[in-house]
Amino acid sequence: MHPALSVIIFTVSSGAGYGLLMLLIGLHIFGFLPDMSENELLTGGIIGLGLVTFGLMSSTFHLANPKNAWRAFSRFRTSWLSREGLFAVLVYPFALLYLFGIWNSGVELNAFIQVTGFITIVLSLLTVFSTGMIYGCLKTIRQWNSALTPANYILLGLALGAMLLVALRVSFNGEVGLVASLTLVVLDIALIAKAIYYFWIRRVTGPTMNTATGFTRANVRLLDVGHTAGTFLTEEFGYIPAQGTVTLFKVLVFVLGFIVPGVIVFGMTGGDATSAMAWVALVSAFLGIGLERWLFFAEARHVVNLYHGAQNT
C-alpha cells in the first residue's frame, strides 16, 4: 500500500492524544495521582485534545473531495471509518466537560468529574479500536486482517500517551515513579504485540494468482498488464518498499520506539527524572512509532496485486 503521510500523521498523533487522555483521566478519576495540580491536569487534557484535533485535521488531507466529509458520520451501522469519526467527535463534549469540571471545582474528585472522565475514557478507547478496525476488517489485505491490528493500535496509542504523561509529570515536577512503572509495563506489552505481529505476517497465506484468475491446476504468469503507464490501482496498491529499508526500519522501530524510551523510563522508576531524559524518550518514541506506522502501510500487500503479476501477497 502507498504509505500516505497524512494518514501516518493522523493515526500516530490522534492515537497518542487518545492514549494520553485515557491514562491521564483514568489515573486521576481512580485516585492514583493525588499530587497532580489543576494546571497539570488541564495542560495534559489540552495537549491530548490538541494532538487528537491535529490528527483528525491531517486525516482530511487524504480526502479527494473533503467538502463531503460531513457525510462520513452517516453509516456508523456498517462502516468502521464512520464509527471512528462518530466516536472521535463524541469524545470532545465529554472531555471538555471533564476539563471544565476541573477548571470549575479543582482536582478534588466529584461525581461530575468521574462520570464525564469515565465516558471520555470509554469513547477514546472505542475511537482507537475503530481506527484499528478500519484496517483490521479488510479481507483484501492479509497483513491487516487480524485481531493484532486493533490491539496494536490501542497498545501503541497507550504507549505514546504514557510517554507524554511521563513528560508532563516531569515538566510539572510531579512524582514520576508510578507513571514511569506503568509506562514500562505498557511499552513491554506493546513491544511483545508488535513483535508477534511482525512474526505473524511473515507467513504467506491467502489468495494467490491462481485463485485470483481461477486457474488453480497450472502455473499462471502475467504476460501483459494491459496498460502502458501507471493506473490508480498501481499507484495506490503497487508500492513495494526495498527489503533493506524494511529491515532497517524494523530495527529502528524496536530501538527508537521501545528500547530507548524503555531504558530511559526504567531509569525514572526510582523517582529521579530530568526533563532532558523525558524529552529524549518522547521524541525517540514518536520517531519509532512513526516508522512503525509507515511500515504498517508499506508492508501491506493488497490482493489486486495478484492481477498485476504478484504470485501471492
Partner: peptide
C-alpha cells in the same frame, strides 16, 4: 481493464 496471462 484487460490483462493477459500465460497459463501452464
Amino acid at each position: 481493464r484487460i490483462r493477459h496471462y500465460e497459463v501452464g
